[in-house]
Lab assay of single mutants.
Amino acid sequence: RSVMTEEYKVPDGMVGFIIGRGGEQISRIQQESGCKIQIAPDSGGLPERSCMLTGTPESVQSAKRLLDQIVE
C-alpha cells in the first residue's frame, strides 16, 4: 500500500475549527480518515494555511472531504 504526502490549503481563519477544543476535531478527522494531518504553525500572513496530509491515496481523499465539510 503506497503512502503519499500531499499539501492541502485551508483558510487561515478556519484552523481553530479544524483543530477543535483540545485538538479533538483534528484527532477525529485523523481517526476517521486514517490520514495523518500536520497543520503549519502559522500562515506567514497569507489567507491560507498549509496542511500536510500523509497516508494512502484513499485516506488523503477522505481527509480532504472531512476538512472541506468543516470549512464550508
Rank of each mutant, 00 (worst) to 15 (best):
M52W: 13
R28C: 05
M14Y: 11
T5E: 14
V10H: 01
E72D: 09
Q38M: 10
D42M: 07
P47A: 13
S59G: 09
E58Y: 09
I39H: 02
G23E: 13
R65F: 15
E58S: 10
T56F: 06
R65W: 07
Q25Y: 04
Q31N: 13
P11S: 05
Q25I: 09
I70N: 04
V60Y: 01
E48K: 07
R49Y: 07
R49V: 05
T54S: 11
L46C: 11
I29W: 02
L53K: 00
F17Q: 15
K36Q: 10
L46V: 08
P41F: 03
S50R: 13
Q25W: 04
I37M: 07
R49C: 03
D12Y: 10
V71P: 09
S59E: 14
E48Y: 15
V15W: 07
I29M: 10
G13D: 14
S50H: 05
Q69F: 06
G20R: 05
I29Q: 00
I18L: 13
I37N: 00
R28N: 05
G44H: 06
I29S: 01
Q69K: 13
I18R: 02
Q25G: 10
E7F: 03
I19M: 07
M52G: 04
T56C: 11
S43F: 06
K64N: 02
L46N: 12
L66N: 05
G20F: 03
S62P: 01
P41T: 12
R28F: 03
K9E: 02
A63T: 02
D12R: 11
V3M: 15
P41Q: 11
R65E: 12
I19L: 13
V15M: 11
P57H: 04
Y8T: 04
T56H: 08
E58F: 05
E58M: 09
L46A: 12
A63K: 00
V71Y: 03
E24W: 15
R28W: 05
G22F: 05
G22T: 05
S50C: 12
S2Q: 15
Q38H: 11
R21G: 08
T5Q: 12
D12S: 10
C51S: 02
A63P: 00
R1K: 07
K64Q: 05
Q38G: 06
Q25A: 06
V10N: 01
A40D: 10
E72W: 13
G34N: 08
V10Q: 01
A63V: 02
G20Q: 03
V15S: 08
D12A: 15
I29Y: 02
M4K: 09
V15N: 03
T54F: 05
L66D: 04
A40L: 09
V71N: 06
Q61D: 14
M4P: 02
D68C: 08
C35I: 02
K9H: 06
E32K: 07
M4W: 03
Q25E: 15
E7H: 15
G23I: 03
L66Y: 07
S2G: 14
L67M: 05
T5H: 09
G23M: 10
G23S: 08
A40W: 05
S50F: 03
S62M: 06
T54E: 11
S43N: 10
K9A: 05
L66P: 01
I70P: 02
I37E: 00
V60T: 04
V3P: 06
L67P: 01
G20I: 02
Q25S: 12
Y8A: 02
P47Q: 15
I39R: 01
M52H: 11
R65V: 14
G22N: 15
G55P: 00
E6S: 13
S50E: 08
Q69C: 07
G23T: 04
L46R: 13
Q31S: 11
I19F: 09
I37H: 01
D42C: 12
I19C: 14
E24G: 09
Y8G: 01
Q69L: 08
E58N: 05
G23P: 03
I70E: 14
E24M: 06
M52T: 11
M4I: 15
G45N: 06
R65N: 13
V10G: 02
E6D: 05
E48S: 09
R65D: 10
I70T: 15
K36E: 12
G13W: 10
I29G: 00
M14E: 04
R28I: 02
Q61A: 14
G45E: 12
E58C: 03
A63Q: 01
D42R: 11
S62V: 14
P47T: 13
F17E: 15
S27T: 14
S27W: 09
R28L: 07
A40I: 08
T54R: 07
R1H: 02
I19V: 14
I26G: 02
S59R: 08
S62W: 08
G20H: 07
Y8S: 02
P57F: 15
C51V: 14
I29L: 12
I70Y: 14
R65L: 12
Q31V: 04
R65G: 11
L53I: 15
M14C: 13
E6T: 15
L67R: 01
D12L: 08
T5P: 02
S62I: 07
M52Y: 13
K64F: 02
G45F: 08
Y8C: 02
Q31K: 14
